[in-house]
């Protein structure tokens, strides 16, 4: 495999109405071959009805070291969940 084989991230949509979900990655020299490799590796057993491939280098990822400032502040904020609020009895259906 030469240097021009890039890594591509593969997303599979299991069936209509569901979202594409990250399934893994493949090496390929271009987008069309990446799609074929994704088909051959990730949909052999009827796992999907649609595929996306995205060049891995094009994905902007959060830094694991930033998890404290990015994600921890969400802890303990129950009021952000609808279940935090008690509904008055008069509201029968919501």
């Amino acid at each position: 495999m030469s240097d021009n084989w890039n890594l591509w991230e593969v997303f599979v949509r299991p069936r209509r109405g569901l979202d594409h979900v990250h399934a893994g990655s493949v090496h390929a020299p271009d987008a069309e071959i990446a799609l074929q490799h994704a088909r051959d590796l990730f949909t052999r057993r009827g796992e999907g009805v649609s595929l996306w491939v995205v060049r891995s280098a094009d994905i902007v990822a959060s830094d694991p070291g930033d998890a404290g400032e990015l994600f921890d502040p969400a802890d303990g904020k129950d009021y952000r969940y609808p279940t935090h609020y008690e509904l008055p009895d008069e509201v029968a259906n919501m």
Binding site: M1, H27, Q36, H37, D40, L41
Partner: peptide, 12 residues
């Protein structure tokens, strides 16, 4: 095969 992906493709 030249790489794992082609291995799978040819076997398929």
């Amino acid at each position: 095969a030249p790489d794992l992906e082609e291995d799978m493709a040819l076997a398929n």
